[in-house]
Design a protein around this nucleic acid. Structure first.
Length: 310
DNA sequence: AAGACGAAAGTGGTTGA
DNA sequence: TCAACAACTTTCGTCTT
């Protein structure tokens, strides 16, 4: 048995990399020294490369593993206390199940009350906000990364006391709007408003507050980021999408997009490229999924057609 | 008949004085 | 705060396929 076969029995120790010295493709991670070492010629490729993420203890059965494990779920900004909450048990018992003395029980009651009171206002706000955040984001089909980041933005706003005097729901909606845009998965204010109980104007106001107070500046929404969603709703192929993005880039270059609603631009580009690829959709269909009117779609479509000489 | 087109009037948001 | 403005919407009659 050669050294490669020996180590391949142990998962995590073998890294697929080519040694510049002897062209061996299996490199051994040496946990003892934290180095990355070539199994054939012994060349040390990088010092302190390996971080041992395994626990320092060993377990030989599931029960033993559970007993020794000291960690729980990963931290999540979507949980009120990041999933690291402390509560003082309501039963007045010690660790062995014995009843506390009346004197001790009184002290514990007092501690419990103080602990609870300290957290009450922030907790109450967050529990309402995070529930709304989960509801909105799942209705809007936003991925976990966006939800988590929106929660972080909201917490920042809460810490900066920006929520005071404003509506929780509005701030949640604004955080989602902000993060979905910055992640290139934009939802329009109108879409967010239609799932929220607040109107567009209110959410836009909260959004401006967030941008100003947290010093965030987002570039205007790129029309190309609207293409995949629209194309999906219209059941258009990926080649139509690619062509639409091409058209949009060209329109951008010719400065046709300044001041125009990115959604209608994307809709017009898709309308044109769908016709080019023989996947024609009616203006009404396209306008409907883009939440605009046929007239606007026509105007954008005519401009693009004229300027790009299509 | 459905879809496309375009004119006209109205709406809501932005900008600059 | 207000007027001017561009973008957008609504409505509706007409044309094209």
């Amino acid at each position: 048995m050669n050294v490669n076969e020996m180590y391949s029995e142990i998962p995590g120790l073998i890294t697929i990399q080519t040694c510049p010295e002897c062209n061996n493709t299996h490199i051994i991670s040496d946990y003892a020294t934290g180095n990355l070492v070539c199994a054939t010629c012994g060349l040390v490729l990088s010092d302190n490369y390996v971080l041992d993420e395994q626990p320092e203890w060993r377990a030989f059965s599931k029960e033993e593993y559970n007993k020794k494990s000291r960690v729980g779920d990963p931290l999540s900004p979507l949980k009120i206390d990041y999933g690291l909450g402390t509560t003082i048990d309501k039963r007045n018992q010690d660790g062995y199940g014995n009843l506390l003395t009346p004197r001790c029980a009184h002290r514990i009651n007092r501690l419990r009350w103080l602990h609870d009171r300290n957290h009450r206002s922030v907790t109450r706000n967050l529990s309402k906000a995070l529930a709304e955040l989960k509801r909105l984001s799942s209705q809007l089909g936003l991925p976990m990364s966006v939800r988590n980041e929106a929660a972080i933005i909201y917490r920042k706003a809460l810490r900066k006391r920006l929520i005071r005097g404003r509506s929780i729901d509005g701030m949640v909606a604004a955080s989602l709007y902000l993060v979905s845009r910055s992640h290139g998965l934009p939802r329009t204010l109108r879409e967010i408003a239609s799932t929220s109980r607040l109107d567009k104007k209110e959410i836009a106001r909260c959004y401006r507050v967030l941008c100003n107070e947290l010093n965030l500046k987002l570039p205007p929404t790129d029309a190309t980021s609207m293409v995949p969603r629209l194309a999906n709703d219209l059941g258009l192929s990926s080649s139509v999408q690619c062509r639409a993005i091409e058209i949009l880039k060209e329109a951008e270059r010719l400065k046709l997009s300044i001041g125009k609603n990115p959604m209608s631009l994307a809709a017009a580009a898709l309308y044109i490229s769908a016709i080019e690829f023989g996947e024609r959709r009616t203006q009404q269909e396209v306008a409907e999924v883009a939440q605009t009117t046929e007239v606007t779609l026509r105007n954008r479509y005519k401009e693009i057609k004229r300027e790009l000489r299509l």
